[in-house]
């Protein structure tokens, strides 16, 4: 049994079918990536797992338990968090408050403090700027904050929607290092990326999505070497 099992998930926005029956697995302790073009349904998939969008059909199980259609706050308390696309930090809150709000459902003060120290260790930059308003941070720092904020909930699964979008290459490398590090600490990662090359390099397993369907799967390495993937998503000829 995998940690997350998505079976035949269908989502409609108005009359448009955004997901046409998506199935995939996320093994505990692994990094899994969904790659694909714009509009393939990657973001919708993550939003549906996070409870922001309700599927019309299909099931999502987590640890064998059916979590289809649960409220986002229930899923956060079960340990599934989403780092949304475009960072979405609370610009009107300080860096420290953004982190505190990530631990909104945790009651134990000592636990929050410990987790805060951990996040500050991962991102020393955030500690330096803890009293600054999050809206004044640079793009890269906001992404660190978005990831740090998600870690504050002490997730078992962290889902990331395009964490490298719009960031300078050197910062992108840092973000992928952090993803690996988070994973090594035992958190399962479900990642979607435009930057398919980098994503497949860190991922244990990958799925390719096209217009609302999963069309291919394989280990990260296998997909990297696959000619069709190379042509379509990695911009490399044979």
């Amino acid at each position: 049994m995998s940690l997350i099992e998505v079976r035949d998930m269908k989502v409609r926005y108005g009359g448009i079918e955004a997901l046409k029956g998506v199935s995939f697995d996320v093994e505990e302790g692994s990094i899994v990536t969904l790659i694909g073009a714009n509009g393939a349904g990657k973001s919708t998939t993550l939003k549906t797992i996070a409870g922001l969008v309700k599927p019309v059909e299909g099931t999502i199980t987590y640890n064998g338990e059916d979590i289809t259609g649960l409220e986002p706050q229930k899923l956060v308390s079960k340990g599934i968090v989403l780092v949304p696309e475009g960072r979405r930090v609370f610009g009107n809150l300080s860096v420290y408050e953004n982190l505190r709000i990530g631990a909104y459902l945790i009651k134990d003060k000592a636990q929050i403090e410990a987790q805060l120290e951990h996040v500050y260790d991962l991102f020393p930059r955030l500690k330096e700027r803890s009293w600054q308003l999050a809206g004044t941070l640079s793009g890269g720092e906001q992404q660190m904050l978005a990831v740090g904020r998600a870690l504050m909930a002490q997730p078992k699964v962290i889902m990331m929607d395009e964490p490298s979008l719009g960031l300078a290459p050197i910062i992108v490398r840092g973000i992928f290092d952090i993803i690996k590090k988070i994973n090594e600490e035992g958190t399962t990662v479900l990642l979607i990326e435009q930057n398919a090359n980098a994503a497949l390099r860190v991922a244990h397993h990958g799925y390719v999505m096209e217009t609302g369907n999963v069309t291919m799967e394989g280990t990260g390495q296998a997909l990297l070497n696959d000619t069709r993937v190379r042509e379509a998503y990695l911009g490399k000829a044979k």
Binding site: A50, Q73, S77, P84, F90, N92, L93, Y104, R149, A153
Partner: peptide
């Protein structure tokens, strides 16, 4: 303050 800024992300915080 968080909800006044962003409903959806606030929900993601629990």
């Amino acid at each position: 303050r968080a909800v006044s800024r962003d409903f959806e992300t606030s929900q993601l915080m629990g």
